[in-house]
């Protein structure tokens, strides 16, 4: 009997306190308790490092030395540093081209997989392969593929007679960026393809049938039914994938390490070089230059999620 009243009365209380939103009612206490581990991790290993980074970007900190506060000097000297400006420009070119490539390839392959196919599951598994391959392995394989002496791209191009002498794709100022972009697209497009495929499959079949009855052709059906159906997914995938691409240290570090002569330096590589020369204040400022971009994207994702709820 006691258990019955215990379970029934709090249920009523909870309902009431939901409206009041008290922080001491049982639901709230349980809620805070359950959030505690994640919040502790985020305070110690997210908020604190971020605060530390902002602080060190305002000092002349180097490894092992006491830091002196120097205001915004680090940011000033960054904007005057041609290598930083190159890194910012390269980051923009790299991310834009990679995302465009992933979108086109991802959408094309999703449409292909959405057709009536024998063994669709098998083909989907094949498309997932680049995503399953660890990034550090994938980029090393691509580096070898582009190698002028032993790489198979040069062997192929020479055999079919397209080139006379091997090209050092990663060592050439004009080729390095496109080569790295292509490798990054290869590794990243499956995420887009799989997401687009799911979105296409979620569009009700009746819509297509109704449109076909009304005399819409394939292109009209695609434009008026498929595209609107996948639009919300495109947005979320685009935002998440762009953040990851801005972040892609390994794609560049393992292939060109930023070379030849800064041709493929992007912001994370620039910041890493600063750290290896122990210039902490300066490279903290460089890393923080990613924040405005990240903030814009976060704002759009949060807005989008609010709409979903």
């Amino acid at each position: 009997m006691a258990t019955v009243s215990e379970t029934s009365t709090p249920a009523v209380k909870v309902k009431k306190s939901r409206r009041r939103g008290g922080i001491f009612d049982p639901t709230s206490i349980l809620g805070y308790f359950m959030m505690l581990p994640a919040m502790v991790v985020l305070i110690l290993f997210f908020a604190y490092p971020l605060g530390f980074e902002i602080y060190s970007s305002l000092t002349d900190m180097t490894l092992g030395n006491d830091a002196k506060f120097i205001g915004f000097d680090n940011y000033g000297s960054l904007l005057a540093d041609p290598e930083f400006l190159t890194a910012a420009k390269n980051s923009f070119v790299y991310v834009t081209a990679v995302q465009l490539g992933k979108f086109v390839l991802g959408l094309g392959i999703a449409i292909l997989l959405h057709q009536k196919l024998v063994a669709r599951g098998f083909w989907r598994a094949v498309v997932l392969v680049p995503y399953a391959m660890p990034g550090f392995v994938a980029y090393l394989v691509w580096k070898l593929f582009y190698n002028p002496d032993v790489g198979s791209l040069n062997i192929i191009l020479t055999k079919i007679g397209l080139i006379d002498a091997p090209i050092a794709f990663l060592g050439d100022r004009d080729w390095a960026m496109p080569a790295v972009i292509f490798a990054t697209i290869w590794r990243g497009f499956p995420f887009w393809a799989i997401m687009f495929l799911a979105a296409l499959q979620a569009v009700p079949k009746e819509l297509y049938e109704a449109a076909a009855v009304d005399g819409a052709n394939a292109w009209q059906r695609f434009k008026n039914i498929s595209l609107p159906g996948i639009r919300p997914v495109v947005l979320v995938v685009f935002l998440i994938s762009t953040i990851n691409t801005i972040n892609s240290f390994e794609a560049i570090w393992l292939t060109t390490a930023g070379g030849p002569s800064d041709a493929t330096v992007i912001l994370p590589i620039f910041a890493y070089r600063g750290l290896t020369s122990f210039n902490i204040g300066q490279s903290a400022a460089a890393a923080l230059s990613l924040v405005p971009v990240a903030l814009i994207f976060t704002y759009f994702i949060l807005k989008r999620m609010k709409k979903d709820q």
Binding site: F249, S283, A287, A294
Partner: peptide, 10 residues
């Protein structure tokens, strides 16, 4: 959504 490249220095 925070890029990892933001925090490796601290």
């Amino acid at each position: 959504l925070t890029p990892g490249a933001l925090l490796f220095i601290p």
